[in-house]
Simulated assay, not measured.
Amino acid sequence: MRALHWIRAVLILGLLALGITMTWLPDTVAAKFTWMYPNHKQFGVLVWLLVLVQLGIRWRSVRPAPPAGLKPWERHAAHIVHVAMYVLALVVPMMGYAMSSSFTQSDGVPFFGLEVPELLPKNDAAFAVFDWLHMVLAYTLLGCVVLHVAGVIKHRYFDSDRDNDVLPRMF
Rank of each mutant, 00 (worst) to 15 (best):
1 M>Q: 12
2 R>V: 11
2 R>K: 15
10 V>M: 10
13 L>G: 14
21 T>R: 10
26 P>Q: 07
29 V>H: 14
32 K>F: 10
32 K>C: 02
32 K>Q: 09
34 T>R: 12
35 W>I: 08
39 N>W: 15
40 H>I: 10
42 Q>I: 07
44 G>C: 13
47 V>Y: 05
49 L>Y: 08
49 L>E: 03
50 L>H: 08
52 L>F: 10
55 L>E: 11
57 I>F: 11
57 I>A: 14
59 W>Q: 11
65 A>T: 06
66 P>T: 04
67 P>R: 06
69 G>N: 06
69 G>C: 09
69 G>L: 08
74 E>L: 08
76 H>R: 14
78 A>P: 04
80 I>N: 01
94 M>A: 12
102 S>A: 07
109 V>W: 14
110 P>E: 07
111 F>I: 00
111 F>A: 01
112 F>H: 07
114 L>S: 01
115 E>C: 00
120 L>T: 04
122 K>D: 05
123 N>D: 15
124 D>R: 01
127 F>A: 02
133 L>S: 07
136 V>A: 14
137 L>R: 02
139 Y>P: 05
143 G>S: 08
150 A>T: 11
150 A>P: 02
152 V>Q: 12
154 K>C: 01
154 K>V: 03
156 R>A: 10
160 S>H: 00
162 R>K: 12
168 P>K: 01
169 R>K: 13
